[in-house]
Simulated assay, not measured.
Amino acid sequence: MLKKCGLVVALVGTVFFGTFLQETKAYASKGTDCKMIIDAKEHLGTNGKFAKATGSCKGFLRGVYVPDSKQYTVLGSINTTVKNGQKFQLSFPEIDGYVTFTVYTKSKTIKKTDKVKTSSVKVLNRKGNNDKITVSKVRKNDVVKVYSRNKNLLYSVKSKGSKVIFSNKKLNKNGGTIFVSVKRGNFKESSITKVVYNAEK
């Protein structure tokens, strides 16, 4: 009788242990590929603002942007600087095999200054070195630039108000083309505006 009981316990134990192994293996094989998006504008590490990983990497990795070095960094199971689209093969204790971890970076988008309208630029081409270029509808501290038809910089000035005047200049006596741009604060320089001017009067 004791032998039979022992046999039954052994069989039950075998079945249970076998089932446990199967369940553990099934659980461990549920690894999913993961990703992380590090935003240079948001994930600066201050006030706990870090990028978080998804999928099987969740809780194991975090990302941060370091402004001083202008680098994106992943911290946690791996500690390294990264580039946009970089991939890693990682393994975690509860995962069977490896998962692919992809890092994406999002840089700060710097907007361009609004383009100067052609109607805001007036060119007076006179005899001698007395030509004048007036650019209106700008703001104080805007940097206004004038380029030649070959896109070489001719003049540049910081605005003191809503208008800038380039006086006593020498343009082509037969008329021609200039290009004008404006840069405001931390915005990028605007696209250039083509302005055609007449021959000397």
Rank of each mutant, 00 (worst) to 15 (best):
V138A: 07
K70W: 01
F17Q: 02
K52W: 08
L7C: 10
V164M: 05
K194P: 04
T113K: 06
T81F: 01
Q86R: 10
K122R: 12
Y147G: 03
S159Y: 03
V74Y: 05
I133Q: 09
E200T: 11
K117P: 04
G31F: 00
I78L: 11
V123I: 13
K173F: 13
N168T: 02
S162L: 06
D142R: 06
S120T: 09
K173M: 06
A28C: 08
K25V: 13
A26E: 15
K145C: 11
T32A: 10
I78F: 01
D96M: 05
V135F: 12
I133G: 06
A51T: 06
N172S: 15
A10G: 10
R149W: 05
F92A: 02
S69Y: 05
G161Q: 09
P93V: 05
K194I: 10
L124C: 00
G6D: 07
A26V: 08
S181R: 02
I95F: 10
D114K: 12
H43M: 10
V138C: 04
T32D: 04
K151C: 00
G48E: 08
K111T: 14
T80E: 11
Y197P: 03
V82R: 03
V146R: 05
V12D: 08
K201N: 14
C5V: 15
S77C: 01
Y72A: 04
N79G: 14
L11K: 01
Y27Q: 09
N84R: 02
T109C: 00
F92L: 13
V135D: 09
G76L: 05
N141L: 06
K87A: 11
G13Y: 06
G161A: 11
V182E: 02
V123R: 10
G13M: 12
V182D: 00
R126D: 07
G45F: 01
R62A: 02
G48C: 12
K41D: 14
K111C: 00
V164F: 02
G45T: 09
T102D: 08
G175K: 04
G31M: 07
Q89H: 03
I95G: 01
F101E: 06
K25Y: 11
K127H: 03
T24L: 10
Y147A: 05
V196Y: 04
E189W: 00
S120H: 12
H43S: 02
F166I: 06
Y147S: 06
F50G: 05
V9K: 02
A53M: 04
F101Y: 04
F17A: 15
T177V: 14
V9H: 01
Q22P: 00
S167A: 13
G85T: 05
G48N: 14
I133T: 05
S77D: 13
H43P: 06
S190Y: 07
K4V: 14
K158E: 07
K108R: 11
N186P: 03
V99Y: 02
S91F: 09
G13T: 12
D142A: 12
R139M: 10
V146Y: 07
K132Q: 15
